[in-house]
Each structure stands twice: as structure tokens, then as C-alpha cells.
Design a protein around this nucleic acid. Sequence first.
DNA 1: AGGGGAAATGTTTACGTAAACATCGGCTGG
DNA 2: CCAGCCGATGTTTACGTAAACATTTCCCCT
Lengths: 359, 359
Amino acid sequence: MDGIVDTPRKSGGRTAPDGAAPSRPKRGASMADVARLAGVSAQTVSRVSNGYPGVTETTRQQVLAAMRKLGYRPNSAARALKRGEFRTIGVILFTLSTTGNVRTLEAIATSAAREGYAVTLLPVAVPTQDEVRGAFTRLGELAVDAVIVIMEVHLLDAATVSLPPNTQVVVADSDAGDRYSVVDTDQAGGTRAAVRHLLDLGHRTVWHLAGPEESFAAQRRADAWRATLTEAGREVPEMVRGDWSAESGYRAGLRIAEEPDCTAVFAANDQMALGLLRALHEKGRAVPDDVSVIGFDDIPEAGSFVPPLTTVHQDFAEVGRRCVQGVLRQIRGESAERGTTLVPTRLVVRQSTAPPPAR
Amino acid sequence: MDGIVDTPRKSGGRTAPDGAAPSRPKRGASMADVARLAGVSAQTVSRVSNGYPGVTETTRQQVLAAMRKLGYRPNSAARALKRGEFRTIGVILFTLSTTGNVRTLEAIATSAAREGYAVTLLPVAVPTQDEVRGAFTRLGELAVDAVIVIMEVHLLDAATVSLPPNTQVVVADSDAGDRYSVVDTDQAGGTRAAVRHLLDLGHRTVWHLAGPEESFAAQRRADAWRATLTEAGREVPEMVRGDWSAESGYRAGLRIAEEPDCTAVFAANDQMALGLLRALHEKGRAVPDDVSVIGFDDIPEAGSFVPPLTTVHQDFAEVGRRCVQGVLRQIRGESAERGTTLVPTRLVVRQSTAPPPAR
DNA sequence: AGGGGAAATGTTTACGTAAACATCGGCTGG
DNA sequence: CCAGCCGATGTTTACGTAAACATTTCCCCT
């Protein structure tokens, strides 16, 4: 519980260098200014500004004219202070380097804008609990009505204590549906579809190039992969781990290429699949003739890989939209529902999968 | 000059469903509450909260204890109203689907956070002047001290009229250094390095797979490409256009593959280079043995293309950092400098470039 | 024509904070 | 021993808006 306390700005006084020209026109026009010019009361200006009824068209036009002339802008700070709400949603995330986060964020920003809400970004540099806690504390002072968290929940836990009590939270990318409102893609379903697709093509089993251990998403995909194989009564090969990056996929791929038995690989994301494709290519194992590869995410470039990548499409835009819906519902007090909302995933079959080579 | 006027919220009254439990604890604790509990005046609380000197350590601790007990959070709206500043930077951009924008945004958010500023996102769905103008109008009401614009300036022009007069603007991705403070990567330099690299390898000339016509970035890269060839006294092949996407690169690649003379292609970004690689691969033209390919951006995956892509690295993080520096300088009134800041680019040589095939 | 009432507009007040100014008390130095 | 002063703390006020309440205006109907 630090961070309530700022250190004083070193600049000391905010006074301009004396004698300098008053270049900055201080503040903009206020309601009072508009009211004076239009010859009405401030309250009438307020009514016009907020589109409330009960203002004559004539008056309205006068006020609008005055607004234009003065270049009036409602002061959002005063507004927020009066209304007790900011019309702003905070988004906490670690990194913008994963497709999913970025697309989700984009959808959040767009949906929020449509609802008249702004989005404030709260990046957390390093995924440690301390950092997260710090971000949440800063957030507490931020002009925000609700928060959407895009991160693994075990990091969130330490932080929630310092969340302002009224703050609404929706979490993407987590399994903590019991404690928060969670929106996520149906990763298990997507994984199952991917693995089944390969089995249906005739592969005896499917290898898995997994994401990093800390990631719930990775874990869920790995679990679903294992479960699907087990259900089908297939042998479960040793899992290979990457860290989501194409480079790690390449390194893993070099090892997988050495396995003569391996005819099908399910990569936990498209970037790693890309690296895998390169490794297989370099090792002379043809895709899909010798080895089938399937990815996860359906990044825009996936269709341009060599060969075009069969992958699981995730509708991040929908995730973002539902996150916004979720927090707005909470803000409006319509429901404090917890639980997980799953956004369907969809298998996109391209050219990186085929039946196994004949023996 | 619309948008000053909201339409009234359809929800009508904000009154809670009567009789319902007062589930929402209204507002949080205020300074007055803390002051009462700590047995001091509100002003002392304010002093502690802002880290001002002139408070006994004993008193300080009492106040801090009271803050903790009440879960006090400074109300940022009131703070902003009083101070006349929001400690927030607005970022306007079109899309988060290009690497550059995303990386720049990430760096902006991080740098801003370090300076105690929050970042508010203002996505513009469709790149039309109307849309942009609307975004700027909304922005005018937003709690923002300064704006960073990541977009082509010709769209900005129509919008500036409705920018709040005091707002500071820094623009990334533009050439309007005469009117705004602009931060950009040294695209001309990067392009020259790329083209020279190919010429130095022995290629007679270099083809160009350009970005869309509307893009200044694309235009600048194309101009620099042409200039470099001309300076070197080489023939300038017909330019091929894409739209930044891998898919468009693929289509363009299919055409380029038909040109037997073409031994080297400079693609205006890595995505298009990826599509180009695929097209060349499908057409049986080996990279780099038959055709050299060079990209632009150095996206994280570029090193995992087949073959790993030689490309021009852009330091978007630095761009973001400088944008923030720029607006902060402007906010602090240290200088209203216009002009363009160029962030150096750097050629990253991987394996997609080689001397031309012997004849 | 007068009364009732709704629509239009004005007035008061509070939101939470922090600057500016006011006060209080104790310590220093002549 | 007291004037003077400084450091610690309290009081007043304004920031710009919008809800709640008050007043004026004007129209319609009997």
C-alpha cells in the first residue's frame, strides 16, 4: 500500500519564468463564459451541452453559437467530479507483443468508444507481483470507472487487495471465473478441434509444441491436447516447450525434426508454428507431406506462411467486445455476475495439414 | 464542430431500482474523512498525500494510518479540476494492426507511466477525415493534456481545427515537421541502406514492392528507393504496389516471379516480404539464390521466415519514447519546437539476400 | 378574463482537492 | 526575558459542472 504518496515534483514552483510572455492562454472558456456571452444562465448551457430537453430551439442556437465562438469544451474533470464517474475504462496488460492482447485491446477501445467510454492503458513492464501491485495502486488514483485485466490471474491475486473497492473488473485470459467475470476464447474447444482434425486425417498421434509454463493459456491448451489424445486412446508423446516466440519454435522444431515417428504437431501459437515450419524445412522434412503442422491464433500472416498454416482462429474482437459489455453491465449495476464467458474458436484448414505419409 | 452536445443517455434516471439493497457503497473515502479519522485538517492530509514538506513525521504516520484504514484514494477528477491538468496523454491512431503502431504505442505507454502520465487511447475506426474529426472532437472533451497522433498528416489537417487550442501535439508517421513536432524513423536512410546493400552485392538493379498510395511512409520509402537507384545510375524498374498485407505481397510476388530479370526485391514491409517469399517459393524461384528479398520493420518473426529475412530494423520503442518526451516538453512549456526528429534505422542482414545468380 | 399548469429558465449548492493565506506554538538570540 | 521568527497546522476559497430546487413565462381551457 504505497503509492498513495507522490514525491514532490522537482520543478518546485509551477510559476512561469517571470517576465516571459504569457504565451499559454491559461484555461479554456467555461460554462460561465458561454452563459455570459449567450445571455443565459450556466445551467442552461449545461442543459444544452448535455442534450437535455427543456430548452427552446432559439435559446439552444444562441448557446451553441456562443460555444462555437468561445471554442468551449466541457471540462471533463469537473464533469467527472460532479457525476462521480469518469466514463473511462482502464486496461491493464503486460505486453502488446502478443497478437491476442493487441487485438483484444483494439476491440475494447473500439467498443468502449461506441459506448462513450474512453480507454486508459496501464502497461505493466515486468510480470512480477510487485509490478502488478504497483500498477493497480496507480490505477486506484486513475480516472477510471472499471478495469479490464488481460493477464494471468495468479499475478492478479496479489494485486486485488489494493484495488479500489468499487472498481469493476473483468478478466481476459484466465480461469478465475469463480472470483471475477472472465471472458476468454474457447481454447479447449479449439485445441480439441485441432487435434481431432489431425487424428481424423489418419495420424497415429499428435505432438504438442506448448507455450511457457507460467501461462494459463498454454496450460489449458496442453491439457486439452492431452485429454483429446487420451480420450481417443492414443499414445501421448512427450511435450515440447517454447516461449511463444518464433525463435523458440525453431529451436523446438530442430528437436522434433529428429523424431522419425512424428507426423503431426500441434503448436500452441502461430509464431511458434512459424519457427517450427522453418526448422522442418531446413531439416528436409516436408510440410504437410512428411509432417502436418497446426497452429493457434490465426494471425493475419498465417495464410502466407510456407505452406499456408492450418490453425485455430480466435475471435479476439469478440473477446474485447464482451469484456466491454461485461464491465458496462457491472458499472450500471445490472449484475455482478461472475463466471466465464467463452468465445467460440474455429478451425481454419489451410495447407499445412494432410494425411500421414504412407509407410 | 459538432459533438459538444451529447445525446441524453437513454437510461433516463440514474436512480437505482428502489427498494434494492444499497449494494454499491457510493463513493470512497475523501480527504475530509481521512482528516477526521486522523484528527487533522484536510489540508494536512493533502500535504501528506502529495509528499509536501512541513509535516511532522508523527502526524504523517497518523494520516497514513487513517488513509490505509479507510482505503483512501485521491480523487483524480477533483485533483485534475484543481490543478488544471490531467496527467494524461491521448493517443490517436487508426489501427493496431501494424507492428509499428503497436510498438510505438507500447513505448509511449511505458514512457508516459514512468513520468507519471496515463495514456488514453483514441482509436479511429475508418480513416476518413470525418472520422478523424470526430475523434478529435471527442478528444476535446477528454481528460487529456496533450495528444500524440500516429497517422498520416493529410487526414490530420481537417481535424486540427477542432483541437482544443491549448493541446500539445506530436505526430509520428508524417512529414509535416513544419507545422507539428514530428518524430519518425529514418525511413529514407533505411531504404538507402537496403537498396545499397543489394547493389553492393552485385545486383544490377532492385525492384520495389511498395505500400499503399495513401501512406506517406510508403511514399517516402518509394522515393528513397528511386533516388538511390538513380544516384547509382541504375535503371528503375516499374514499381509494384501492395497494401502492407502479406496477402497483397503474395499476389505481387506472383507477378514478380514472372520477371526473369528480377534478381532483387525491396519490400516496403516485412509482411509483404513474407507473402513475396511464399510466391517465389511456389514459383520455384529460390531465395536468395535466384532472387534476393529485403524487408522493412524487422518484426519479431522476420528471423524465422524461410529463409530468415534481411530487413531494416526500426526502433519504434525509441519513437514512442521521443514522442512522450516531446509532448512533455511542450506541456512544461520548455519549447514549442516544431521540426522532425529522426530515429535511426539499421539494416539487419540475415539470409534472404545474396549476390545475383551467375549468368 | 382568469386560473391552472406545464414548459423554460434561473439560483443554490456540493462534488474533492490544493493554493493562498492565517494562526499557533516553541525556540533562538540579543 | 522577551521580540522575532520559523515550522507545523488550520481555514478559506475557487476550480467547472450538474442535480435539486425555485422562479418566471406563456399557453390553453373553461
